[in-house]
């Protein structure tokens, strides 16, 4: 490479650093905003009215599944847990939670499937299936408005640290960490879309782009594909660790499940 080319390359690199803030720094507590606040008033209105929020279709399905018997044990969720409005209130605020038997954190979807395979002796529901999304949305709905509580289990700490490391680690052909967008450039746009702060307050949520309800892991995998990285499989420990870190980052923010996002 000639000297002239080297200088041009250095100048381009300097311009790139100047226009994009690339040093990872966490968002100050008072500046945290739900993805809801980045939406147009029209999209906010869809979420705010339970009769126009399409996520409620899944929530109602989940309510029906809650009381329907499944598996060889012939038990429904309600047979053990009773009225979800009481027993499931606040549950979604502290997931992923540590599972002693698995010796690792599990998210809400995995907890539902552990209940199915263990207590109901039924088959596990597939990730992103209507049934699993419906049950997760129904359970999440019982925590709507309650603040996210950071999980205080000491067993969680190494997994939380791994999640934070993954959030800060550059990956993919575009060599971007989650933090490069969601900590450092959340007030900007990618193409026409607001970047936002990546707080998982409303999952599972109805994305207008998906035309359906989707889980947090679906969203995380989307982002990874966007950075041209190989996404982890559904249920991978890395994704659960990332969920853990995102929930700790959003501690205190109210649950919106089922939210609507563009």
């Amino acid at each position: 490479m000639s000297l002239r080319h080297a200088i041009v390359a250095m100048l381009l690199a300097a311009v790139a650093t100047a226009t994009l803030r690339l040093q990872a720094s966490e968002i100050p507590h008072f500046e945290r905003r739900s993805g809801f606040s980045f939406m147009t008033p029209e999209t906010q209105a869809i979420q705010n009215d339970d009769t126009s929020n399409p996520g409620m279709l899944w929530t109602l399905d989940g309510e029906a599944l809650w009381t329907s018997k499944a598996g060889a044990a012939g038990k429904s969720c309600a047979d053990c847990h009773g009225d979800a409005r009481v027993s499931m209130r606040g549950v979604a605020t502290h997931y992923p939670d540590f599972d002693a038997a698995q010796r690792q954190p599990v998210n809400l979807e995995q907890r539902i499937n552990l209940c199915r395979t263990g207590h109901q002796q039924a088959s596990a529901l597939a990730y992103e299936s209507r049934e699993l999304l419906a049950l997760t949305a129904f359970i999440g709905r019982q925590s709507r408005g309650l603040p996210i509580k950071p999980n205080s289990d000491s067993n969680i700490e190494p997994f939380l640290a791994a999640g934070r490391a993954l959030f800060l680690r550059r990956q993919g052909q575009l060599n971007l960490a989650c933090a490069n967008c969601h900590d450092d450039n959340w007030d900007r746009h990618l193409a026409g879309s607001a970047i936002t702060q990546a707080h998982p307050t409303g999952y599972p949520l109805y994305r207008l782009e998906w035309q359906t309800l989707g889980s947090l892991q679906r969203r995380l995998r989307n982002c990874m594909v966007g950075t041209r990285a190989e996404p982890y499989d559904y249920g991978a420990l890395e994704l659960v660790e990332l969920e853990l870190y995102l929930m700790s980052r959003a501690a205190g923010m109210p649950i919106e499940t089922p939210a609507v996002r563009p």
């Binding site: 009215d49 339970d50 009769t51 126009s52 409620m56 279709l57 109602l60 399905d61 309510e63 029906a64």
Partner: peptide, 8 residues
């Protein structure tokens, strides 16, 4: 399975 939401 729930299929419709109506608000009247």
């Amino acid at each position: 399975m729930a299929s419709a939401l109506i608000n009247v």
